[in-house]
């Protein structure tokens, strides 16, 4: 599902509500027919959220960062798997540099490398295509398509005209 809208129309807030970082004032959020707050652990174990902040530590290398993030999400990844994921999105060369020396686009790609590592049903991605070059966007779109064709779900906010080819794509337009 695409979430479109102008700057400040509440796209990010909607995503933060969906993953439980904010609580809705009215209404409730459901996961497979149950209220999220009642099945929080199950929901969180199915969720992969990458916000507009990358969640990377400047003083750690991409490999260390991803291994910490995976462990935190109750997953495990061998070093070689992490390296493969970084290769897949084209930042394999930077795998052992501290993140602070990487460019904005490279940092984004390191954060997005988690998409190749976890098997989560629901992806919530806030502006995943921002700061990426066109080659990386193609790689990312292919990965998202693969996920959707394997019974995955993705909720994505974007500005770019990126075409996701999966059969059931919905568009939610937020207007104030």
């Amino acid at each position: 599902m695409y979430v479109l809208g102008d700057n400040g129309s509440g796209k990010s807030s909607l995503l933060r509500l969906l993953c439980g970082l904010m609580q809705p004032e009215l209404g409730s959020i459901y996961w497979q027919g149950e209220q999220v707050k009642h099945v929080l652990e199950v929901f969180q174990a199915n969720l992969l959220y990458i916000g507009h902040l990358n969640g990377l530590k400047e003083d750690l290398s991409p490999i260390e960062n991803l291994q910490v993030n995976m462990r935190l999400a109750a997953d495990h990844a061998e070093k070689s798997d992490v390296l493969d994921a970084l290769e897949a999105i084209g930042v394999g060369r930077c795998a052992n540099l501290p993140v602070r020396v990487l460019s904005q686009g490279q940092k984004r790609r390191v954060a997005l490398a988690r998409l190749w590592l976890t098997e989560r049903k629901l992806w919530i991605l806030d502006e995943p295509f921002a700061a990426l070059d066109s080659a990386s966007i193609d790689v990312l779109v292919a990965r998202i398509n693969h996920h959707l064709n394997n019974d995955g779900m993705a909720i994505i906010t974007t500005h770019q005209d990126v075409v996701i080819s999966a059969q059931s794509t919905q568009v939610l337009r937020l207007d104030l």
């Binding site: 970082l21 959220y49 916000g51 902040l53 969640g55 990377l56």
Partner: peptide, 22 residues
């Protein structure tokens, strides 16, 4: 502060882990 500004804190909050332990 640094966890807050780089987004690590968000990942800690939505992790399927007991937050008080973290």
């Amino acid at each position: 502060a640094s966890d807050f500004s780089d987004g690590s804190l968000e990942q800690m909050l939505i992790a399927p882990q007991p937050l008080p332990m973290l």
